[in-house]
Each structure stands twice: as structure tokens, then as C-alpha cells.
Design a protein around this nucleic acid. Structure first.
Lengths: 191, 191
DNA sequence: CCTGATATATTGACAGTGACAACACCGCAA
DNA sequence: TTGCGGTGTTGTCACTGTCAATATATCAGG
């Protein structure tokens, strides 16, 4: 006899996705710290303990959100970089990076805050992160001598990431300047 | 001035400082999220509720830590900048900034993570933060035309902050490269 | 001295939380 | 059939931030 007649039913493979989706929505609403597994479960229409059937613990759920975030970011960067090169490609990549941070501030923070998730424990997330950086490095490779690509890629990433972070975390400056700044930064690495 | 008996006794003005000091130690041990007011109180030798006698809530305590952190940072930057100018001053300031982030990663994170403390609600902390940035801007003013000081200061801050953050949050690269990187970054803003 | 007022300190209580354990149920393979 | 592993649920626990009620120390004014 099913004790709960109301068709709670099995979600088969869906429960994991449903939980991740619910968590993704909650993340932008309340942030990673305030996000509670119980609220995630409720929003997904499952029981209190459901998240533990699909993730080791809260950190593992957050790591999955971060991994998906890096994959989306990498795809976005690849898209704007494709077919372009040099300073213009760099400006577009920078603009997209900043745009991502502004569109999903809580997710962006999660992706770069060791205190919220220690991604070094989650190889899939680290890999997705590396593939985002690879896009940037490929762009720099089109505009710098080979022996300087590594240093310049790192500097470019730091500059763009610093700007995106400071805008998100301290209201450094208005959102509208995004494109101008990206171009200005890209020019620093030009000829 | 009598407490000092076996009784718990009043700390007069000290309780607030004792709590902040205990919180500062705990912060680097467990991070801002895991830091609990109860543990802070216990470490300061006070009761569970003691923090509420001196701070509105947990966020206010963290804000005080952040404020003190910004003041220490500003002092450190002023020290290394004093008597120097141009590219060398910039390299020293950058190195000090990165060094601060590496020496107190949890505090540095707290100072720049809106999710942990929303500093816009705490004017004293915002002011201390601004005075840190002012040191950097002053250095840039010694090496750039007047109409470019604002843009270049911002870019320099983003670059250094991005590097410090990425090193802390993702193990971007080894600590030992700190000085080299600071010089390399400073060179980007040189003649 | 005493007397309140005020700042400080302490314990009691409560709703949420992450996590573990025990138990119920589904589908499938031997 | 039987048994087993994946999935789902409720029971329970220690811990947390915070509010309320209460006690105590210190100080000002009589």
C-alpha cells in the first residue's frame, strides 16, 4: 500500500536534474550561503532528504552548479571569439565575461569562492573552468609572440576577472560601462 | 576597577575588542561562513549571547573585521609607497596588496564578498576601503597624464585584485611568484 | 549612605539547517 | 519466486542565529 496516494512517484533520472534546476533558481534568489537543501527539495517537489539521494552533501550540489556555470561561460566565450582575432576578439571575450558575471552574480561568485565550494575536490568543475580560460588564451595567441602568450593570458584574465569581481562585490561602477571597459582593457594588450 | 574575582566580571570596554580579536582568529581558522558567534563568545571567555551586547548581528561583527582589515591594508600600502614613485612604487604597492591577500586569505575574501558582508551598509568600512584605493590612485598620479589617472588607477586595481583573488580562490600559481608578477604588472602601466 | 537608571551579562526558548540512520518501495536479474 | 541495489521518506540529532526575559555591575543624584 502506498502510504502517499498523491502520486509522488519516481523521477527516474529526472530528480537529479530537477534538484539542480531548483537549486540554480534559488541560488540567484538567496545566494549560496543562504541556500538550503530543504528549500531546494521543496521547490523540486521532493522530500527533505531527496538531495542526499543524488549528491553527497551541500557542497557537491553547489559544485554541480559551478560546473554547469563554467560550461555555459566557456560556450559563451567560444561563441563571441569564433571568427574573430586580435584586439577585437579580446574585447568581445572580455565583454562576454563581464556580462556573464553581471547576469548571474551569485553563480559567478560561487564559481570563484573557495569558501563556498572547494572546486579542487571536483575534477569535472576544474576541467570546465580550464576550458573557459583556454578560450581566452587562444585569443591572446593570435596577438602576442609565442613566448609571451602565457604571461599575457594570465594578465588579461586577471584584469577582466578583477573588474567583473569588483563590479559585482563593491558597486565599482555602473553596468553600462561594460563595453567601453572591455575595449579599453583589450587595448592594453594591443600592439 | 574591581572585577577580577572568580566571577565572570565586566570587561568594560574590552569585551568588544576581545570579541573582535577572537573573531579575527576564528575567521582565518574556519572562514566567515562557518564562523559562529557562539564559538567567538567562548573563545573570548564570554557567554553565548555576549556578541549581541556589542554588535547588532553576525554581519555587523564581520563588517568590523572587514573595516579593520581595510585599515591595516591601507596602512601597509601607504608604508611601501612612501618615498617612492612611478613604476617602482606601483610594483611595491602591488606586491604588498598581493601579500596581504596571501597572508590573510579569509579576511581578504570577507573584505570583497558581498554575500558574506554587504559593506554598503557600513559606512566606516566603505571609508576604510576607499582610503586603500586612494593610495594606489596617488601612485598612478605620479606616472600618468592627469586625464588618464582615473582610468589607469581602475585598471591597475582590477589587475592586481584579480591576480590576488584568483591566486587565493583557485590555486592560480605559486606564492613565490608574487614579486615577479607585481613588477610585470607594474610594467604594463609604465612609459 | 541609598536609589534608581543604564549598560552589560546571562540563561531560556524557538525555528531552521546539514547530516546521519532506519525504514519503505520500485524495478530488475538470477 | 527471491533478493538486491537505486530511490524515496520520516525520525532524530547537534548546532546555529536571534529574540525575550532576567540578573548584575557601575555610576549619577539625592
Amino acid at each position: 500500500m502506498g502510504q502517499s496516494s498523491g502520486r509522488q512517484g519516481y523521477h527516474h533520472g529526472d530528480a537529479r536534474n530537477a534538484l539542480a534546476a531548483a537549486a540554480g533558481e534559488l541560488l540567484e534568489d538567496v545566494g549560496a550561503v543562504a541556500l538550503s537543501l530543504r528549500q531546494v527539495a521543496e521547490r523540486a517537489g521532493l522530500s527533505r532528504q531527496a538531495p542526499y539521494n543524488h549528491f553527497d552533501d551541500k557542497e557537491a550540489l553547489l559544485a554541480e552548479l559551478a560546473r554547469a556555470g563554467f560550461e555555459r561561460l566557456a560556450a559563451k566565450l567560444r561563441k563571441v571569439a569564433s571568427g574573430r582575432s586580435g584586439e577585437e576578439a579580446l574585447a568581445r571575450v572580455g565583454e562576454a565575461y563581464i556580462g556573464f558575471a553581471q547576469a548571474s552574480p551569485a553563480l559567478f561568485r560561487l564559481m570563484f569562492a573557495r569558501e563556498l565550494v572547494d572546486l579542487s575536490r571536483f575534477p569535472a568543475a576544474t576541467a570546465a573552468s580550464a576550458s573557459s580560460f583556454a578560450v581566452l588564451a587562444a585569443v591572446i595567441a593570435t596577438m602576442a609572440p609565442k613566448d609571451q602568450v602565457a604571461d599575457r593570458s594570465l594578465a588579461a584574465w586577471c584584469l577582466i576577472h578583477g573588474y567583473a569581481t569588483l563590479c559585482n562585490e563593491t558597486g565599482l561602477e555602473s553596468v553600462s560601462k561594460r563595453k567601453t571597459r572591455a575595449e579599453q582593457f583589450a587595448h592594453l594588450f594591443g600592439p
